[in-house]
């Protein structure tokens, strides 16, 4: 279904348009600065403020994952490169880093989303990939010559993803 949707949404003919292309070093402060810069570039192509917020959240979670996991333990300032292209209503965010690959060369699944019955057993983390999967149309990962290449596709025109239904009481 996602593939069909993607095909319909892609503009016929013409090369994808570059929205932004930037590199940053893998620190949390640089991630903040990069998100601010990307948000400014994405503003003109997002139809709603909520869509812009969603894309910023997806990018933040992806950057955080790269800094906290892929680049963890690396000495020096390892670069992260991110590019964004727009093809019709779809944007493709491509993240590249030289960090540790995902286990089994597969991007993580939805992970932790949901509720726990008791406060003390609530998870304090693991929400990131669930948010990315919920807000993205497509996620793909390849390992190319010691680089992680993660591509996330988001539709900027469709109404923002709805929130999950609450479990029945």
């Amino acid at each position: 279904m996602a593939t069909q949707n993607k095909r319909d949404k892609v503009k016929q003919g013409g090369a994808p348009e570059v929205v932004f292309d930037l590199s940053l070093v893998g620190t949390m402060q640089d991630v903040r600065d990069a998100l601010k810069a990307c948000r400014a570039q994405l503003y003109p192509i997002c139809k709603t403020a909520q869509k812009l917020d969603d894309i910023e959240l997806v990018m933040a979670e992806t950057f955080n994952n790269i800094v906290e996991h892929a680049l963890a333990g690396q000495t020096g300032n390892s670069p992260i490169h991110v590019s964004c292209t727009k093809d019709g209503d779809l944007i493709s965010l491509v993240f590249r880093d030289v960090g540790t690959p995902f286990a089994n060369n597969v991007a993580p699944g939805r992970g932790q989303v949901g509720t726990a019955a008791h406060a003390q057993s609530l998870p304090e983390g693991g929400f990131g990939w669930g948010l990315i999967h919920h807000l993205a149309q497509d996620i793909s990962y390849v390992r190319v010559k010691q680089h992680n290449v993660l591509t996330i596709v988001i539709d900027v025109a469709t109404p923002p993803a709805s929130v999950p239904n609450k479990p029945s009481q």
């Binding site: 403020a49 909520q50 917020d53 969603d54 959240l57 989303v113 949901g114 509720t115 726990a116 406060a119 609530l122 929400f127 669930g130 948010l131 919920h134 807000l135 993803a161 929130v163 999950p164 609450k166 479990p167």
Partner: peptide
């Protein structure tokens, strides 16, 4: 368990993250 945390003044993007992760029910 002695004290309860209540959240107030959620702006739209913050409210959305709580709802997307179902933390609005917690």
């Amino acid at each position: 368990p002695e004290r309860t945390l209540v959240l107030a003044g959620l702006t739209a993007p913050v409210d959305r993250v709580f709802r997307l992760t179902r933390m609005d029910s917690v």
